Simulated assay, not measured.
Amino acid sequence: MKGVIKWLWIMTVLGIWVEVNGCLEQEKAALLQLKKNVGDQLPFIFRSVWLLDYLESWKEDKTSNCCDDWEGVTCGLNSRVVSLSLESPNLGHLSEMHFNASVLHPFEELRELNLTSMGIKSWDEDKGASKLSSKLKSLESLNLQYNNFDASSLSQLHGFLSLKYLFLDENNLEGLQLHDIEAISQNLEELGLRGTEITGFQNNNGSTKLSSSLKVLDLSQNMLDNNIISQLSGFQSLHTLNLRANQLRGVVPLKGSTNLSSSLKVLDLSYTTLDNNIISQLSGFQSLHTLYLRHSQLSGNVPINALHQLRNLEVLDLSENNINGVSNYNGTVTSSPII
């Protein structure tokens, strides 16, 4: 008996655990409850597709191993669930689910949670959403894309200390502000807000703590105007910024954005309406290596004399514009991407 105890102690120190009957019993029970909770709220046509096609592998019998056999479930060496994906290809905005977040509380070592396209509209009141951060202390990635959340329904999510990646794309988050995001996590490195109906961030002035942690920001397909540049001017660590398909027009005030110009490596301004002098506006962005200006309404002769200052530029996409030629530049530029 002492030998067994000693061996278990060694395995604990090394982080190695023997899997007994698949994942932990309480986590298996929580997964089955989650399947039931979601299934009960779905219209019949979606219920049959989601339960039979996607979660058909989630079985209640004792021989079913949720670590090895269940779709969307990944376990660590100690048989604890570390990744859970309930992504549905069929629901999206076609359902309005009230999600009981308390069923997620047992997954204390969960690092990735994907609830994409589940049709979630809100969290069930007093059903655990506000306590998620104290239960899921290891959570690093949260994907809530293609649901029916609004800005107020996200207010119950706060205090995730380990969360680095947050994807809220394709929800109606009109009125969302950076302090709302900061309340969810102050340590985000990547944030997805594509197609969320946001029009800008008010009273920012670069004071948000996200300005020092955020590296990748997707704001594409929104209703942002030229003011977004000044609203993001304090983001000193941002290296990828996607502003594709917004209401940027004319001369975008990029000059003077000291923090952005020193950190940005990838910038997407495609599908906007830009002034022909956009290249000169970017002359100070010496870290930039990828610039997308596809379908940005550039026309005639485009002066790109400042291009030689972008010494690290590797990709320049000027396609789908009405450019006759370029001026004040000794190099060669075409209307196709330069790679």
Rank of each mutant, 00 (worst) to 15 (best):
V4D: 12
I5N: 13
W9D: 14
I10T: 06
M11P: 08
V13L: 05
N21M: 13
E25I: 11
A29W: 10
A30M: 03
Q33N: 12
K35R: 08
K35T: 02
L42H: 05
P43T: 06
F46W: 05
F46H: 13
F46A: 11
V49Y: 15
L52F: 10
D53G: 10
L55I: 10
S57A: 13
W58C: 07
W58L: 11
E60K: 14
D61G: 08
T63F: 15
C66Y: 04
C67S: 07
D68T: 09
C75K: 02
C75V: 03
C75T: 09
S79C: 15
R80L: 09
V82W: 04
E87R: 13
P89E: 11
L94W: 12
M97Y: 06
F99H: 04
A101C: 09
S102Q: 10
V103P: 06
V103K: 03
F107W: 04
N114G: 02
N114R: 09
T116C: 04
I120Y: 02
K121Q: 13
G128F: 01
S130Q: 09
L132I: 05
S134L: 10
K135S: 12
K135G: 07
K137L: 14
S138G: 06
L139R: 05
S141G: 05
L144W: 00
Q145E: 01
F149G: 00
S153D: 03
L161Y: 11
L166T: 02
F167R: 06
E174D: 11
E182Q: 07
E190I: 03
L193W: 01
T199R: 07
N204M: 15
S207G: 13
S211M: 04
S212E: 15
S212L: 08
K215R: 07
L217Y: 00
S220N: 07
Q221F: 11
N222Q: 14
D225V: 01
D225N: 12
N227G: 11
S230R: 08
Q231P: 08
L232M: 00
L232P: 01
G234C: 02
G234V: 03
F235V: 04
S237N: 10
R244H: 12
A245V: 14
Q247N: 08
V251A: 09
V252C: 02
P253I: 02
P253G: 03
G256A: 06
S257Q: 11
N259A: 14
N259V: 14
S261I: 11
S262T: 14
L264E: 01
L264H: 03
V266Q: 06
L267C: 12
D268G: 08
Y271V: 13
T273G: 04
N276R: 02
N276S: 03
N277G: 11
N277L: 05
I279H: 00
L282Y: 05
S283Q: 13
G284L: 10
G284E: 08
G284H: 10
Q286Y: 14
H289K: 11
H289F: 15
T290R: 14
Y292W: 14
H295S: 15
S296E: 08
G300A: 09
V302R: 00
P303I: 00
I304A: 06
N305V: 08
N305Q: 09
A306T: 09
L307I: 14
L310M: 15
R311N: 14
R311Q: 13
E314L: 09
D317V: 10
L318T: 07
N322L: 10
N322Q: 11
G325Q: 09
V326Y: 06
S335L: 12
S336L: 13
